[in-house]
Design a protein around this nucleic acid. Structure first.
Length: 877
RNA sequence: GGUCGCUUGGCUCAGCUGGUUAGAGCGCCGCGUUCACAUCGCGGAGGUCAGUGGUUCGAAUCCACUAGCGACCACCA
């Protein structure tokens, strides 16, 4: 033994040291892995965390899952790259810094000016970024730090400029005046999905409007009305359609045209709506259809403009109050409905009410046919790759959500009126417009002051981090881009499918004409005990860093992997981490026992790559169970069912190995080889889940690093090659349990089962041959109490389809039990008949469970005398 | 309005394409602790799998409807 292991495992003493050891080895970087040139690559890009936020449990879950996949694939010999980075989160970051400055100095960004503000932002970022990275390391994430990227570092800035220019030149990016979601506080546009709707009580004003009475929630926009619309089928208003009407208003009367448009709902209000094209999405669409121009009355500060007479300068809320009062005085208010519930549009960052405004912005035209996409549009290609399953979703149902969203996608507004971010690489001089990587020659060129939507740069994440555009010349990938793109899995939260996943798909299709990843794995949200989102303001969050300090990173990881299923939210509590810590300590002690009880110090772990010979029933049983576990774990991880994989491993480690085999090993000696072989294997299997403790244990009897060991092969069961049947041990095990049950109570009440599976074995001989084992197990038979009980026991052996089940029946339920068995028999016999008729159908026969096929030979019978034989054999031990 | 999901023992959840007696962890009750582990061991109680109907030899599992809860999308003049 190299090291003695402590009695209890201490994560805090070991985790940092182990992480350093890993990092020093260089194996996080795929270039350092000792692999043949044909080794396939396996790449995951880390969804870059927002640089201003601290790590929360959602991040921890993400890190646990991705590190699991990466470590698993690394053990399987893949050229694994897990690429780290952070996101500049333009609006959020600028907001945070502005808030901080205002709090400290009372100054706004306009007081500071662009350059000064950006300086502040950058110094702020230096601090926060370091924190996030330290936290990420503490989770044990095997990220390749040599490739660390930032969405706003020099390389990414260059990539973004090139991308913009290429899209501009291809006609995919255009500038135009459109209705946008405007946040008057952030002074920026918001994409549709950055707008949040909140249900609110407000007022619905029924106003007299020429010959109509109509309902509106925003009477102040009346100053911008240029039309009135009704539904074309509405019989009430047929005669007005097409007319021009003179409408009295607070600033004098004005003229509107009555148009018929299907967007109007006859059931809402009076079925008439006033049309304010400049300040409402739906109105602007109606106006466009009827060729009606708009009149802008609200400015970028959310205040009434100079053309609003005495209302100029008021906020919309102030103006509403004033105008309603004036209208009321003029007798224009019919009535006011106080109980109107509507969804108000809010900025997802600052919660301000969104003001729809017409504005000059940059857009990506998602429906524009592009030559480089085979004359298809970005939308068409993005839909195609999901429909053809070139990209798949886990769980599958999110594919539908993606397709629905993508189908209804409008042109994507990419310009933002903030300072922190990728400045748009376009320069103006008078009417001239220049798009390029650098400012054009000549004087008086002014660069567009807007920056790009943060999702523009994060949409490029899979390839901007791999050296695009330098690694992409004449349509050929080179370097990292050739090695690692497309990536294999994108793992992220389902709430971000539209914001991020869809953008990545479009950007990659445009830049490389290939998908960014082939599989999208969506995890659910980690909720608090009561099913609420964890948040700072509610104070219901669990801080992962605190938990790591308390229970260790392994426990935190395992608690986020077990009991979580893909795409489903999960309630979470500290106790869950605690139970995983307990398991980790169990594994530690199992290892400690095995390593300290080796009776042969010459065993070379290196020679234990192949399965040792089984010398007894128990040996064979445990080796069989191990192989089954290897197969199951492998399958479940490949299927992205991490929780099931861990369950299988947990069952083997605790219930089979610790509870049974180790106890047997205390009786039957000479098991060192097998024990060490099993330990080796479970350490490798557990490593992707709990890397620290497994690496630590490994290091006590190995010189190499566990993280680059070889994953055990999933193979068929090798039972045929052994003399001892693992099933026989199952029988023994069940007999022991049954004896224990009988002994633990003085009477036998309910029907207790000996679910022994017997395939043509002589049970009596089996018991006799293993008498030592049965007798000596501390849970086994110590006295012969059963003899006294013997006469009272009623029993049955049920033979179904080649396997025999032994029941010890109490007096209570015998009749019930017999009835159940008869019903089962009837069921099976009926099925058998059907089977016979379908014998021709080979496929069906193959799929039918074995036991049903075998029913042909077996009949269901009760064998009272057999049970007596068993009891006799047991009592004679 | 549209779409999706959930409803399984006190709590948190598993349960794959229908097939032995529906599982686990926590909690609870009883017993135990001599040398791997009290961050432990052994045993136990506790479920008409939301409801109704259907398909089937057989349904927690498939279908339909109902009820409750939740999420997302659209729109709200």
């Amino acid at each position: 033994m190299k090291d003695e292991l402590d009695k209890a495992y201490s994560p805090t003493e070991n985790e940092n040291k182990i992480y350093e050891k890993w990092e020093k080895s260089g194996y996080f970087n795929p270039d350092n892995l000792e692999l043949s040139s044909e080794a396939p690559s396996y790449t995951i890009v880390l969804p870059p965390p927002n640089i201003t936020a601290k790590l929360h449990l959602g991040h921890s879950a993400m890190l646990a899952i991705e590190d699991l996949l990466i470590r698993y694939k690394r053990l399987k010999g893949f050229r694994t790259l897990w690429l780290p980075g952070t996101d500049h989160a333009a609006i959020a970051t600028q907001n945070a810094v502005e808030k901080k400055i205002f709090k400290e100095t009372g100054k706004t960004r306009h007081d500071l000016g662009r350059d000064r503000l950006l300086e502040e932002v950058w110094s702020f970022l230096k601090k926060t970024q370091g924190e996030i990275l330290v936290q990420t390391r503490s989770m044990g994430a095997s990220l390749d730090w040599s490739r660390l990227a930032f969405t706003l570092d020099d390389e990414r800035q260059q990539a973004v400029k090139v991308m913009f220019k290429e899209m501009y030149e291809a006609g995919a990016i255009y500038r135009g005046e459109r209705m946008v979601n405007w946040c008057p506080r952030c002074h920026s546009t918001l994409a549709d999905d950055e707008v949040e709707y909140k249900e609110e009580h407000s007022k619905l004003y029924w106003i007299k409007y020429g010959p109509f009475v109509l309902a509106t929630s925003r009477p102040e926009t009346k100053l911008g009305d240029t039309a009135v619309a009704v539904h074309p089928d509405d019989i009430r208003y047929q005669k007005y359609i097409g007319q021009e009407l003179e409408i009295p208003g607070v600033l004098g009367s004005f003229t509107v045209k009555v148009v018929a448009d299907k967007a109007v709902e006859m059931e809402f209000g009076s079925g008439v709506i006033k049309v304010t094209p400049a300040h409402s999405f739906i109105d602007s669409e109606i106006a466009a259809r009827h060729n009606i121009s708009g009149r802008k009355i609200i400015n970028e500060d959310g205040r009434m403009m100079a053309n609003c007479g005495k209302y100029a300068g008021l906020t919309t809320a102030e103006a509403r109050e004033a105008i309603v009062a004036d209208m009321d005085a003029m007798g224009l208010i019919d009535h006011i409905d106080d109980n109107y519930i509507h969804n108000s549009a809010r900025c997802y960052r600052c919660d301000s009410v969104i003001e729809p405004l017409p504005s000059e912005q940059w857009f990506i035209g998602v429906d524009k046919k592009l030559a480089r996409l085979g004359n298809k549009s970005l939308k068409e290609r993005a839909l195609e790759v999901a429909q053809t399953e070139e990209i798949t979703f886990v769980p599958d149902r999110f594919k539908k959500r993606y397709l629905d969203w993508m189908t209804n996608l409008h042109d994507w507004c990419i310009s933002r009126q903030i300072w922190f971010g990728h400045q748009i690489p376009v320069w103006y001089r008078g009417a001239e417009v220049y798009c390029g990587l650098e400012a054009p020659e000549g004087a008086d060129w002014r660069q567009d002051t807007d920056t790009l939507d943060t999702w523009f740069s994060s949409g490029m994440w899979t390839f901007s981090t791999l050296g695009w555009p330098d690694n992409f010349k004449n349509g050929q990938k080179t370097g990292d881009l050739a090695k690692f793109h497309p990536t294999q899995v994108l793992e992220t939260g389902y709430e971000i499918i539209t914001l991020w996943v869809s953008r990545m798909i479009m950007m990659s299709l445009f830049a490389l004409n290939e998908i960014p990843f082939s599989k999208v794995y969506l995890h659910g949200m980690v909720l608090d005990k009561n099913g609420k989102k964890m948040s700072k303001s509610k104070g219901n969050g669990i801080d992962p860093i605190e938990m790591i300090e308390k229970f260790g990173a392994d426990a935190v990881r395992l608690s986020l992997l077990m009991g979580f299923t893909p795409g489903n939210d999960n309630k979470f509590s500290e106790e869950r981490i605690e139970t995983k810590r307990n398991f980790i300590n169990k594994l530690w002690n199992i290892s400690r026992f095995i390593l300290s009880s080796l009776d042969n110090n010459d065993i070379k772990p290196k020679n234990l790559n192949s399965r040792p010979l089984a010398k007894s029933l128990a040996d064979n049983w445990i080796l069989e169970a191990l192989q089954k576990t290897i197969n199951a774990v492998d399958k479940h991880i490949e299927d992205m069912n991490f929780s099931l994989a861990a369950d299988e491993l947990n069952d083997f480690t605790w219930n089979k190995l610790a509870d049974w085999y180790l106890e047997i090993a205390k009786i039957e000696k000479g098991k060192s080889e097998i024990l060490l072989y099993i330990l080796r294997n479970i350490l490798i299997l557990w490593h992707p889940f709990i890397p620290f403790v497994t690496e630590k244990i490994w290091s006590s009897f190995n010189d190499n690093l566990l993280m680059v060991e070889k994953w055990p092969e999933a193979i068929g069961s090798g039972e045929e090659n052994n003399n001892h049947s693992a099933r026989d041990f199952n029988i023994i095990q069940e007999i022991i349990i049954a004896i224990r049950n009988v002994r633990s109570e003085n009477k036998i009440e309910p029907a207790r089962k000996l679910p022994a599976v017997i395939y043509g074995h002589d049970l009596e001989t089996l018991i006799k041959d293993n008498a030592e084992l049965i007798k000596n197990l501390k849970t086994g038979l110590e006295s012969l109490e059963i003899k006294e009980q013997g006469e009272k026991i009623n029993g049955a052996i049920l033979a179904i389809s080649g396997k025999t089940e032994i029941y010890l029946l109490g007096a209570v339920d015998k009749e019930k039990e017999e009835a159940r068995l008869l019903k089962e028999k009837a069921n099976l016999e009926k099925l058998l008949e059907i089977q016979k008729n379908k014998l021709a159908n080979k496929e069906f026969m193959e799929r039918a469970p074995e036991k049903i096929v075998a029913l042909e030979k077996e009949k269901i019978t009760f064998y009272q005398q057999d049970l007596e034989k068993i009891i006799k054999a047991l009592t004679q031990l």
